[in-house]
């Protein structure tokens, strides 16, 4: 059995977001790039499954659609423990382009289990996993918070309103994972870091279709204004402020 983990290269979650070119592009100056946190947890779960499986899971591959600048992030995944990596040499312009590139590669290079994070922390599109499953004509399960393999039985927990449901499926399938899939990402060991460059990172040309959407402009959310405190006894002032200043009532 082979597991594929799709990883996005995203700005560190503490990055101060700025735009450039008249608010039409993200300003990447000085940005620290990381593995998208949900994807990193997916990789963590894949490693746990492989370690528990004995020989049953033969390898874990990470795949990324991105230019060469994403390779440090891919090598971090190799340092953490993935066995090999694929980079599809294309700019991830939108979810359609990413899913199309992934499916184009995976049609000739099938995997048993494909894991995608529920969304990427930069654009929060939540689209790639579902699109990819459709393009590949594979079953997919979304919002997966637990994934277990017992022999040939695959069990997934899926978060639903007010609880969770347990599903079973057969390989191959796509699981779109979220909180709960693993406890916390692993810290790469010194040995892992040194080994990362020795593991295969195959670069393949883009075989996917062009993006269907384009970014017109970006806006930051309005800055939070200062909080105004109103005495609990002074309902009249509160109503007055809500009506005349906030225009909320």
């Amino acid at each position: 059995m082979k597991i594929l983990v799709c990883i996005s290269n995203v700005p560190d979650t503490t990055t101060k977001i700025r735009f450039t070119d008249n608010n039409t592009a993200f300003d990447a100056t000085g940005v620290q790039w990381i593995i998208n946190p949900w994807d990193e947890l997916a990789l963590t779960r894949a490693l746990e499954l492989k370690e528990a499986s004995g020989e049953a899971i033969e390898k874990i591959t990470v795949i990324n659609v991105g230019p060469q600048t994403t390779e440090p992030t891919i090598r971090k995944a190799l340092a953490i423990g993935a066995d090999d990596a694929v980079r599809i040499d294309a700019v991830p312009e939108d979810a359609y382009a990413v899913a199309s590139n992934l499916s184009s590669y995976l049609k000739d290079n099938p995997y048993d289990i494909i894991l995608c994070g529920i969304d990427s922390s930069d654009y929060n599109g939540s689209l790639v996993g579902g699109m990819l499953a459709e393009f590949l004509d594979l079953p997919s399960v979304s919002s997966v918070s637990k994934l277990d393999i017992d022999g040939g039985d695959i069990k997934l927990n899926r978060e639903i309103d007010g609880g969770s449901e347990v599903l079973s499926t057969v390989v191959p399938f796509v699981a779109i994972v979220q909180k709960g899939i693993a406890f916390e990402p692993r810290i790469p060991s010194m040995r892992g870091i040194m080994m990362a460059r020795k593991k295969p990172l195959n670069v393949v040309p883009s075989g996917g279709e062009a993006a269907l959407t384009e970014f017109v402009s970006y806006d930051l959310p309005p800055a939070k204004s200062a909080c105004k405190m109103v005495d609990a006894e002074n309902v009249k002032e509160l109503v007055d402020l809500l009506h005349n200043e906030a225009k909320a009532i």
Partner: peptide, 17 residues
């Protein structure tokens, strides 16, 4: 180097976590 940066990050993650 990329490795040095990764080692720094690994140490930072361990300390902060």
């Amino acid at each position: 180097t990329e490795e040095q940066e990764m080692i720094r990050q690994a140490a930072r993650d361990y300390a902060e976590r």
